[in-house]
């Protein structure tokens, strides 16, 4: 029985493989190679050893970027691990309008980061809605400079990221909640456990695998932040240039006609190391726990 000719599978795989090679595998190798050169967009370059990497160490903006990323993680990981779970529990039951709520809660995920950042920029403007309401109620007497202050701008961007991410992680939790056995809840209820105790002792253990996955995903996406900062703070990274991220710096150095591809590539390698190493360590730990 001959199911197919020898070349048929290759015919089917080659287009995808070509794209993978041209736009993932080769760029990955090339990024590493470029990081040891001083190549610019229009002019070639030459091998300069580890000079780009020593330059990284002395780049004050890079330290700003790393501090910002750590803060991003410190706020986003707990909030986006916990809040979407509560949200998923709210929309999980079959009650009227749940489909509507679920869909609308997903809207910020669907919207592009550029549009929602523009929307938030208007909300957080000196004369925008948030400052209007805050002044009206009397919480503040003077407009809060959300988009001018170095730290307020960062925390505005973080708040935006949390707002935009809620729906995404909610959907991940929804499918996990569907797998928590009902009988466990019923048994706990019969034993007299109230809602809060059932949450701690039945729901949370039931979705623990998803909780871990979600927090890893949030950590990785915090490393990749770009658009929120770029739109809210402008292409300079805030007034003092301190509201930047690693990806922000990659774009800043690598773009334009005089882009420093070599240095931008060294930044990219650093981004890879900072993202992949924790992932690999976690995967190892996970395997050891299971094995």
């Amino acid at each position: 029985m001959k199911a197919h000719r020898w070349y048929t599978p290759w015919l089917l795989v080659v287009p995808a493989l070509a794209f993978l090679g041209a736009f993932s595998l080769w760029p990955a190798i090339n990024t590493l190679l470029l990081s040891f050169t001083n190549v610019h967009t229009l002019t070639g370059g030459r091998f300069i050893g580890a000079a780009n990497y020593t330059r990284l160490w002395h780049d004050p903006q890079l330290w700003d970027a790393i501090i910002n990323t750590l803060l991003y993680m410190a706020v986003c990981v707990p909030l986006l691990t916990f809040l979407p779970l509560l949200l998923a529990m709210l929309v999980q039951r079959t009650l009227p309008f749940m489909g509507f709520f679920r869909t609308v809660f997903y809207f910020p995920v669907i919207a592009s980061a550029v549009t929602v950042a523009l929307i938030w920029q208007w909300l957080l403007d000196d004369r925008g809605l948030v400052n209007d309401l805050a002044t009206e109620v009397g919480v503040v007497h003077k407009a809060v400079p959300f988009l001018e202050d170095r730290w307020l701008l960062l925390f505005s961007a973080i708040a935006l990221t949390v707002w935009k991410g809620l729906g995404y992680y909610m959907v991940l939790y929804l499918s996990a909640l569907g797998n928590v056995r009902r009988e466990l809840h019923e048994a706990a209820a019969v034993d007299g456990a109230g809602g809060v105790r059932r949450f701690w002792h039945v729901t949370l253990p039931g979705v623990r695998g998803t909780t871990l996955l979600v927090s890893i995903l949030i950590g990785v996406s915090a490393m990749r932040v770009f658009t929120e900062l770029y739109i809210l703070g402008g292409s300079t990274g805030g007034i003092g240039g301190q509201d930047v991220s690693l990806v922000f710096l990659i774009e800043q150095y690598g773009s334009g006609f005089d882009g420093q591809l070599g240095y931008a590539s060294a930044l990219s390698v650093l981004l890879f190391v900072l993202t992949a190493v924790p992932l690999i360590v976690l995967a190892r730990l996970n395997r050891r726990n299971e094995g």
């Binding site: 736009f23 990955a28 990024t31 990659i250 590539s265 990219s268 390698v269 890879f272 992932l279």
Partner: peptide, 14 residues
Amino acid sequence: VLPGEVTIISQYQT
């Protein structure tokens, strides 16, 4: 495991 942003500069060159 490779975030797209890591290879974006080299992709741009390609």
